[in-house]
Design a protein around this nucleic acid. Sequence first.
DNA 1: AGCACA
Length: 480
Amino acid sequence: MSTSTQHQFRYTQTPSKVLHLRNLPWECTDDELVELCNPFGKIVNTKCNVGTNRNQAFVEFADLNQAISMVSYYASSSEPAQVRGKTVYIQYSNRHEIVNNKSPGDVPGNVLLVTIEGVEAGDVSIDVIHLVFSAFGFVHKIATFEKTAGFQALIQYTDAETAASAREALDGRSIPRYLLPEHVGSCNLRISYSAHRDLNIKFQSNRSRDYTNPMLPVNHTAIDGALQPAIGPDGKRKEPESNVLLASIENMQYAVTVDVLHTVFSAFGTVQKIAIFEKNGQTQALIQYPDVTIASAAREALEGHCIYDGGYCKLHLTYSRHTDLNVKAFSDKSRDYTVPDLSLLATQVPATCWQNPQAGPIYPVSSPALQAQVPGGQMPSWDPSQQAFRPSYVSTPESYPGQTYRGPPIPAYATAPSPHAQSNAIVHNASSMGVTQLGVPPNVNLQPGGPSPPVLGSSPLAQTSPVTGAAPPGHRPYYG
DNA sequence: AGCACA
């Protein structure tokens, strides 16, 4: 019986330029597959560590005849195909192409994402990184940062080939001992590809370098600050002020959208960019102002306050290490308000009138991607009549500090939170904040007449929550 | 040693 099924296997194999390899060592790499198969033709794709035992693989040749030549060769060879001494069984795959389900980090590019395992940010200087990676070609730019994954660096080369050679040589290896401080044990490099093509380096600093632009200003504070962190009068480490605030949102019973944050933080000045993300299961957001003064005012005023009544969405604000966020202009988790609204421009300016001829082709006026950002074809938070929309280059940030927030309603807490206040919620009556004009997330239930918080009317939370009804008498909004 | 995963 089993012999006949084997026969069936044999004879139902129609040639394919994709080969199925099995009995591989589980450690097998794509490179080893290429090494094995390359003599027979051009490999256009591979997929290794397939199956529960991770001992199968697929190799796709550019041409069917190349796959046939490999299968025929090993069919009649006395020496079986081998990887790491293990015999590898080869047959035609029953598919005709390898589906490209490579994770983003496997898609080759000219920028590498390097995770330096087992070290702190201070252990490996950017100069050491530069030295190590320069062995493979000219390093254009380096940006380093710390994430939950550890200390990471983006390394930009001229092209993907150079990047690939560096990755090939360094992935899984360690930075030479003599380049590391003594206390560092092992420090493996984990290298994948970044989706970036061109890094946006603003300063030469201890965290980032642009080797193509020697005229770039040097950020001494970043360098000095890292070497000698500022110490506050209480002896605690004081985070340097920044124009970018990091908001941690506690007790987030209700959705906090980009629009909500924009509304809340616009009370203090032009919000340039917002990014929302998750860290350790908590929602955090970065809010970028044009300058430190505005950020500082916003931080002072909003720290510890809640976006919604009832202690929901409590803000904890610190200064971010960022000075300029690199965010998608339109997404549900980020917004760049400094980017002109192309869809608005498009309605006012014929496409042929673009001043920058390059701008047109990059974002076609009828781009579905652009329209997809705005269900219904509207730009809720992009009303140009809103003060908050004004691009940063129009505003005069310098005027804010002494100006005690003219324009939008002045939150009382901005100057002096009253100790008698019964609530520290920022939003009691959302309509008074102009939320309705700014574009309300569909799930926010606004009741313009009443002082109720913009709770999620349709959410089960709204039903179960004890504090979703109208505020008690005397429970006045902080907004006059 | 026998066909992936979105």
